[in-house]
Design a protein around this nucleic acid. Structure first.
Lengths: 344, 344
DNA sequence: TTTATTTACGCAATCGATTTCGTTATATTT
DNA sequence: AAATATAACGAAATCGATTGCGTAAATAAA
């Protein structure tokens, strides 16, 4: 490619000035006379001059680029988050580099490596389901890398964190099932090392406990690949469906799992909400169009992306090292539709 | 942020060499002795030296970054495309900057502006529905900017193009409806200036024609905002439903429209496939889970992203100006499910 | 032994923009 | 009129890496 951009040198040469003067004129320095400023400004506009961001980056040691690590781009929850991230970042003149781990620890490490070698100013991270060693992130963090942990939180890291109230989201969903008359409520969760799994499981257990329903670990199925394949959920459900006493409801604790759960019920022709009641974490808008319309716990994904990005940029642009970290907890929304309410 | 990276200068100082020697040693130059090379290489590995990509970019006038302009990230079709783009780009060490126009011409222009000012090496573009003036793209292209047009093609641009066989996709869908016994088939399309709209409409018309069904333009509804709001589709459908003779099927010619169409039928309790048959372009995996399961025309989105990116990178890395442009046409897939087949 | 050639390296320019430190006029103050 | 201040600009260093050119030392050829 050739695309030769106009540089400050071109302006200087054309106007018989030095590059210093041109630079200062463009930045409205007090050292430059009004006439010269106008001269430069007009000419710059005329030839459509744009400062080279790469040269600026080199000088300022800032790339105005942030990285994002998520498990999957083509997933409603994360694409809504990315939407929120971009809305803030572009607005403030930052680029966003998005990477996906596809729930693979190895790919996540490679992505962090890739990002750190691309001189980004900071990074937003939601870990993969396989990740239970955070060294690839903590090492960078120790070396001064700006990191914000969101959604699937990195517990030991000392930085800003943004997530939803997973405990309450799960509690609400479970309690709703109980109030709808379900008693044998199974739960489908992602890998046990994820923060969201622990918190949502705890919320589920507390809700059972508060309603005097004993927790039965036979009703708990852990999908260690976070439901990346349908088969994983299929197998979990096959096992669940044979449990005795027979389960009468399922709470799926993540977007991906909910999608597969719905597919399972459809394929197996399981009657919802009669045979089993269903509710799950999901940000897929489509869930309302199913028959029966699916009850969901919805997360403010767009807002999560925005908030995490705002915190990251604040950290990046802070003069002194940030030591006071925020731990933001957004609210989930329980949307009751048909899949979790028995017909009268 | 402080994150001070190791530079070539640090290595030079530590080993008592010049930066030139270190640079050449790292690049395995024949001018450097084997011992020195080993010395440098070992030390570089020890302190985890990574070349600063920004400095390299400045020197080589390449940023190893490509831009993407799509209408909406949180849309299955485009997020699958992005997936394909990233899979190729990251593999070859390129960054990807994604922007979305949300179907606004103004935002698209701003995005192109943003990208061109970020010294990217090239750009993948699918235009917004509002776009019928391509100057913001053609101007950059004339100045040597590498651009690949995909999906919603920019007709006048002379460069690589990647799309699907929209004509055939639409033809197949329409013919399938006809073969299923539907006669009064309406079509829902996005803005008339989009290449995909023209091609899909043509396919629809040809299928009608081939089966001796006259084209009735009352059955054609153009959604000039590409279905960005549900209300737009709602209004179009409200109008369609009052037409006489009464329509008995709808073909929706884009992903977004299909989604809203499904919602409309659900809300209005329109019986599918009895009252009206439905088929539409869609890459939402979820469509099979609806009741009735939705028949769709599916596009190879991931492959489209990959192919477009491969062509762009080939163009970027080509020594001489590329003059021989490819016009790739991928195949759509007709997936017949329940929404377009009358029960017996 | 003198000259020619290699080997192995350093100096300095370069990419584009910013910024420190001078420097030259002109203006102001004694 | 001499001294000082100010306004307006330029030269050069800087960011990190690459590379053309120059050169000292070692080796080979004459």
């Amino acid at each position: 490619m050739k695309f030769e951009a106009v540089t400050i040198k071109d302006i200087a040469k054309a106007l018989g000035l030095s590059t210093s003067t041109v630079s200062r004129a463009l930045r409205d320095s007090y050292e430059i006379s009004e006439e010269t400023k106008q001269l430069v400004l007009n000419y710059a506009k005329e030839i459509n001059y744009r400062p080279n961001p790469i040269a600026l980056s080199l000088k300022e040691k800032k790339s105005r680029t942030i990285g994002v690590v998520v498990s999957e781009i083509a997933n409603s929850f994360f694409s809504q988050i990315i939407n929120g991230i971009e809305s803030i970042a572009h607005n403030k003149g930052y680029n966003v580099i998005i990477t996906q781990s596809l729930e693979s620890y190895e790919r996540e490490v490679a992505n962090m490596q890739f990002l750190s070698s691309r001189s980004i100013d900071g990074c937003l991270v939601s870990v993969s389901v396989e990740t239970n060693n955070y060294d690839h992130i903590l090492d960078l963090h120790k070396r001064g890398f700006n990191i914000v942990s969101f959604d699937r939180i990195i517990d030991p890291i000392e930085t800003h964190k943004v997530k939803v109230d997973n405990f309450k989201g799960a509690y609400d969903a479970t309690e709703h099932l109980i109030n709808s008359g379900y008693k044998n409520i199974a739960i489908l969760v992602s890998g046990a090392s994820l923060s969201i799994t622990k918190e949502r499981l705890a919320g589920y257990q507390k809700a059972l406990d508060d309603h005097n329903i004993p927790f039965n670990d036979k009703y708990l199925k852990v999908c260690s690949h976070a439901g990346m394949t349908y088969e994983e959920v299929e197998q979990a459900m096959n096992e669940l469906m044979t449990m005795k006493p027979k389960l009468d409801a399922v709470f799926s604790a993540s977007d991906k799992l909910t999608t597969s759960l719905v597919k399972y019920c459809k394929l197996k022709k399981i009657n919802i909400p009669e045979t089993i009641g269903v509710i799950g974490f999901s940000n897929v808008d489509f869930m309302e169009l199913l028959t029966p319309a699916l009850s969901v716990v919805r997360q403010p994904a767009f807002e999560m992306g925005r908030t995490a990005t705002e915190l990251l940029l604040k950290m990046i642009e802070s003069k002194r090292p940030v030591t006071d970290f925020e731990n933001i907890i957004l609210h989930t929304q329980l949307i009751v539709r048909d899949s979790s309410v028995k017909k009268k």
